[in-house]
Design a protein around this nucleic acid. Structure first.
Lengths: 139, 139
DNA sequence: TATGCAGATGCAAGGGGTTGCAATTGCCAA
DNA sequence: TTGGCAATTGCAACCCCTTGCATCTGCATA
């Protein structure tokens, strides 16, 4: 997404309509510093436009995922979070004892990606992965 | 789980009660050839004991996860599946175009596990992972 | 600028899963 | 064998998310 303007152009070019709901959701995702949940987007947009329906938020996020403008991560708290894809691919190590979340560099996964391609011909999409386990302190 | 009997002993030893509901759920998980969903377990046990509540199934599966007797996998179809841990650790490559599921050897993940331990001191629990992407045919 | 319609929205119902609480019941100790 | 109590269950309500459907509306076209 980088800038909302670019996303708007991309949507328009592909024939998607630029409804006010969509534009406001876009802005909310884009304005979020880090991972934001659908509920948070909903609450934020509702301040200006209380008619918004939560299903519109989910449908818009689904669309943005398909267009590869956001990624989705499940950090294991029963609530999926979304993230502007242009703010960088990154991954998380989630400690299921203390709940701590460590950011992990994308490079750590490169050998795995390569191995999967070589051994299985499988093109893994490791855009935004969460790996569970125990952190240094809890182990 | 290997045999239901062993699991029963483990539960008993740890002070968990052996209720008929639990025993029947255990048997269903153990009898399943491959991954089984909570709903499937519920339906199966209900044949003999129609009083069973689905939340008991979920709570029992939660317990079995904690005791490391089953693993949980989300193959992306909106329904989590369970698998007897003793039938071997394995992982899946899920093609999100054709839906094909390729079984993946555990060994492929060993370098990743080692790298995470070395670089982050993080002890990853990669028991039953699903990796999404495009398979050979769809790529 | 007015028109038509495919795409988008709101609504309500539904699906998978979780949780608080009161009632029930394994199981230990007497 | 019985009594007591903490673990377990069933129930109902709830949470997050998805979906079918009727209505509405951006936007291309005339």
């Amino acid at each position: 997404m980088v800038k909302t303007g670019e996303t708007v152009k991309k949507l328009s070019r592909k024939g998607y309509r630029l409804t006010p709901q969509r534009l406001m959701i876009l802005e909310a995702v884009d304005g979020a510093d880090d991972h934001i949940s659908a509920e948070e987007i909903y609450a934020q947009v509702c301040d200006q436009y209380p008619n918004l329906n939560i299903s519109t938020v989910y449908r818009t996020l689904e669309l943005l995922k398909e267009l590869e403008l956001v990624t989705e991560t499940d950090l294991g708290d029963g609530r999926v979070r979304y993230h502007n894809i242009k703010k960088g691919h990154h991954h998380h190590l989630v400690c299921h004892r203390c709940g701590n979340i460590i950011d992990m560099d994308e490079a750590v996964l490169s050998p795995l990606k390569a191995a999967l391609l070589m051994q299985y011909g499988f093109n893994a999409e490791l855009r935004h992965l969460a790996i569970f386990g125990l952190c240094k302190e809890c182990k």
